[in-house]
Design a protein around this nucleic acid. Structure first.
Lengths: 346, 346
DNA sequence: TCGTTTTTCTAGATCGATTTAGAAGAACGA
DNA sequence: TCGTTCTTCTAAATCGATCTAGAAAAACGA
């Protein structure tokens, strides 16, 4: 069973290893009859085709692109936004019959080389929602792996597919300003530490994610005279938004608007309101980012970004030789729904 | 930049390649001082650590487990059920700092060896919702890659983590029977061919997915005197459920109940009803399978299965040496919500 | 018929590491 | 002081293929 290699097959058929290799990779380099014979013998011997690692080593092609995907891989799947990106990327990958390698970027000792990012046999990489300062990004660069990020922060030459985060947030900020909101709580995700039972206030300096920083800046820009507080309930997820919103709603000075830096968090906030009998858009304004599918039925005001297209565009840059543009700015759009309304006058 | 290998570093430092290798892999095999010196020189030369493919070849470990994921990779992400599985799997993978390789099982010529399943450098594989007759599954077997399936259909020795599909469906069948439903449309997904503008009827023989077959059998078992029709709107997704349900609702003899073989399809059916002013549970009963997060707010009656646990269990079997059980049956549960009600008497 | 092209196949180098077995020297115990 | 054990390092084989250059045989054109 084990130990059947190209050589074994070659010997059995009575040809050279090169020929067996050609039978698999370059059918037009040998007669059809011989190829048939080789394939048949291979089958008999239980040879399952050229070894993947050996082929990858020799030919320099791994047939896979890596995906650096948010802080914790498992968390990523709790946000439909991230999943949408992956779907778009997968679509293109599929077209080029390339696999997607999801790499955890856990804290394994980076220098020791035992981290997944080091180990991964990949031809290229997509970097999704990982700040360009992250060591894993450096490793990719050091390995000379062509990468595309969803973040514009990196070196000038780096490829990216992104949105103008500041401008996008500014659109929402303007909307809230017009509605008269001057006291706003922003729900941010906190990757760094585990938050306890309840949400907590955070400082702007503590924000670890570049996108988040820029969105907050965008909001501030259009809400210069508003009080903007940052609250977190943990990593980016429905439950965290819920927790953080509960904290904000139950505090002595309740804001007039809650902005989730992602829709899942905003939806969590809506749930918290529902429990408290508060009606979004009337009692309190809620807004989010991304416009995930669940936002529409929930009536959530949000900033739409074409997430699946983002995934596709990244895939094209990585895989399609015809793709020339290496830095792509995607459009965003303010989608006003029932969850936002005028701030109650006092 | 390119062309810097272990040997280059070894020569630069003045030691043997083995020592450099040890510096990365077995720090206790050399003096700390030397290791330091090697790592520093490596950095200087722009050496990013041992080549992944070469290491994989020599050591026989790829550091990744493959995931064979439904027919079309991009579609898989449209079902939160599939995503939940992946999240569970990713959780365990992360724990063992192993990557997840999502392989498209497109129709590339299998024999030629250019398919992703052939190419993939993986240590083990998870097979999600791919029938055991699929050629890709055979390839994995031929390659001698340990695999775990979410389907019990394979060889007796094969590992799996599954639910009793027939029994699960029977629970729902019994529920519908008690409510008096005798005319039922089942929404199935059709992977084989592209369906046109509207849903179409399908025969039981045309069902390509083992799970689907078993679920239908389970329904039939508890609804012996009911008319059960199968309708498809395409691959497993909300839009397909919508399309198929529209077809069923607009036909001259409307059923009293619609069962989606997945929640996403059932939710699509609910949307079709909403458009037509029909109220689920009163005018028509709708039910699904999986109990995805969106099912609860929608009031969808469904069969719950612990999908994330399923992913975790598969991960454990593949990665955790301490895991001994190799065939695990997960529990299911009928969750009755407002979308199911008594069949209207005539 | 003879030189030329095409088809079919092969030898041997190579991809970049890891591993095994063992050498050289240092440290140790009595 | 001598044999023994540890520590530190190395030489050479090996993992399993693919690639380049070229040989042998067959087909071809005039």
């Amino acid at each position: 069973m084990a130990g059947v290699t190209l050589k074994t097959v070659a010997k059995a058929v009575g040809v050279s290893p090169s020929t067996v290799s050609n039978a698999y990779n370059k059918p037009d380099q040998l007669s059809a009859a011989l190829r048939e014979r080789i394939l048949a013998t291979a089958q008999e011997l239980g040879y399952a085709g050229p070894d993947a690692s050996a082929r990858a080593l020799r030919s320099g092609k791994a047939g896979a692109i890596g995906v650096l995907f948010t802080d914790k891989l498992a968390y990523a799947f709790s946000d439909p936004y991230a999943v949408g990106f992956l779907a778009g990327l997968a679509e293109v990958a599929e077209e080029f019959s390339t696999s997607l390698l999801l790499m955890p970027l856990s804290s394994a000792d980076i220098v020791g080389g035992s981290s997944a990012v080091q180990q991964a046999a990949i031809d290229a990489a997509a970097i999704f929602c990982v700040p360009s300062e992250h060591p894993a990004v450096d490793i990719l660069a050091a390995r000379g792996i062509p990468s595309v990020s969803t973040d514009r922060g990196g070196h000038p030459g780096l490829s990216w597919v992104a949105i103008d985060e500041v401008e996008a947030a500014a659109k929402l900020g303007k909307h809230l300003n017009r509605l008269g909101h001057r006291d706003i709580v922003v729900l941010v995700d906190d990757k760094a530490e585990a938050v306890g039972e309840t949400g907590i206030d955070v400082d702007f300096d503590e924000i670890t994610c570049t996108d988040c920083e820029m969105r907050i800046q965008g909001l501030q820009k259009e809400l210069p005279d508003a009080r903007i507080r940052l609250v977190t309930g943990g990593h980016n997820a429905f439950a965290s938004g819920l927790k953080a919103a509960e904290y904000a709603l139950d505090s002595h000075d309740r804001p007039t608007a809650i902005v989730g830096l992602s829709d899942v968090q905003a939806l969590g906030a809506m749930e918290a309101m529902k429990v408290r009998g508060l009606i979004p858009g009337r009692d309190l304004t809620v807004a989010g980012f991304d416009d995930i599918p669940a936002a529409e039925p929930a009536g959530l005001t949000t900033i739409r970004q074409p997430i699946k297209d983002k995934g596709r565009a990244v895939g094209r840059i990585l895989l399609d030789p015809a793709a020339t543009e290496r830095q792509i700015l995607m459009p965003t759009q303010l989608v006003v729904r029932s969850s936002s309304g005028p701030a109650p006058r006092h």
